[in-house]
């Protein structure tokens, strides 16, 4: 049911753009007002969210022991799984961000049987999620970089190289981008696992499906424009360039299907800071990944503790000696000695 909510909202959004631009004459709204608003919401929302996270206290070191902790010198320790200094922690973070190392450790629970026929739970390594995630994220990154050809003149060489490399198979014309296929393959599995596995279906909310369907919608509308409908790409570049030069012009040659693509991207941008997609920024602030396991090496002081001056027993006795003697409590220094 949650999947249908997500699918329904994305279809409604796409239809809204199609009707709004194609028949409703609201091109100004969908081509100019909404894109600017979406970018503003994305930039400001993203910054505010990260600043809000920065204001929350850093917790005590969380030693998630993915490897041997550093102890005695003659015991080799897992340098990058259980780092004790910032250098190794940076390596752990880089591996996490670029290769999704935590996801690589993903396991799946399987109900099997022991040799004598009794049911037993077993845990197996499950790499498909990692593979789909890697395909999806890197394809998305390359696709976004590739799109910079619409915002640069002359198009920088690295972007031209990327375009060339991505269409190196020289299939069809306009040439097929490999990232388009890999992107859909990754997304397809990320969606299929939510629908196929009962355990994952049970914990999947409408928001999980919405993000997936939204990105699938963006991918399909882009693929439709490039390989099926064909759009006037130079007119679109005129539009995108005018947009980033703050003097929007909407050439008449642009087909409505482009505005469906644009509107879905705008929805993604505006939705981003408020959604689980903020893991883009959040991954850098993961306390189990970005803190070295040095709680036995450095004294950790709670940053929000009030400042309390040390008060020794001797000083305490000096403060209350008379009252203590009066109450019959034993004191180290007698009243006479003090005088």
């Amino acid at each position: 049911m949650n999947a249908f909510y997500g699918l329904f909202i994305v279809c409604a959004l796409a239809l809204a753009a199609l009707v709004g631009v194609g028949g409703g004459g609201m091109t100004g709204l969908f081509a100019v007002a909404i894109p600017y608003a979406a970018v503003a919401i994305f930039v400001v929302g993203f910054a505010l969210k990260v600043m809000c996270w920065a204001k929350s206290p850093v917790p005590f070191r969380i030693p998630t022991t993915g490897g041997q902790q550093k102890s005695l010198d003659w015991i080799p320790y897992a340098r990058y799984d259980n780092p004790v200094n910032s250098r190794d922690t940076v390596v752990r973070m880089i591996l996490e961000v670029l290769t999704f190392r935590s996801l690589f450790r993903n396991t799946t629970a399987v109900l099997g049987k022991t040799p004598d026929g009794k049911p037993q739970v077993g845990y197996f390594s499950e790499k498909w999620l990692w593979l789909a995630a890697i395909l999806f994220h890197y394809s998305f990154l390359l696709i976004v970089i590739r799109h910079m050809r619409f915002f640069t003149e002359p198009v920088p060489l690295p972007i031209q190289w990327l375009d060339w490399a991505d269409s190196i198979l020289q299939i069809y014309s306009p040439t097929l981008y490999q990232t388009n296929l890999l992107f859909l393959a990754g997304l397809g599995w990320l969606l299929a696992r939510r629908l196929l596995y009962p355990q994952i279906r049970y914990i999947s909310n409408a928001a999980d499906y919405f993000a997936l369907f939204l990105i699938i919608g963006i991918a399909l509308s882009g693929i439709y424009m490039r390989y099926v409908a064909k759009v006037d790409i130079v007119s679109i570049k005129q539009f995108t360039m005018s947009l980033v030069m703050f003097s929007p012009v909407v050439p008449k040659e642009i087909a409505p299907s482009f505005f469906v693509h644009l509107f879905l991207v705008c929805v993604l941008l505006a939705y981003f800071p408020f959604s689980k997609l903020m893991h883009l920024g959040g991954v850098f602030l993961s306390p189990t990944r970005n803190l070295p396991n040095d709680s036995r090496i450095h004294h950790h002081e709670n940053p929000w503790n009030p400042k309390i001056k040390p008060h020794s027993y001797e000083a305490y006795e000096d403060d209350f000696r008379e009252a203590m003697v009066e109450a019959g409590l034993p004191v180290v220094k007698q009243l006479e000695e003090e005088a």
Binding site: F42, V43, F46, M148, F151, T152, E153, V234, S235, K237, Q238, T240, M241, S242, V244, M245, S247
Partner: peptide
Amino acid sequence: VTFPFWNNFGAKEWKQ
């Protein structure tokens, strides 16, 4: 993220 904007900063118009 704002690369498209500052990359074209100051330009008035792009002609086909």
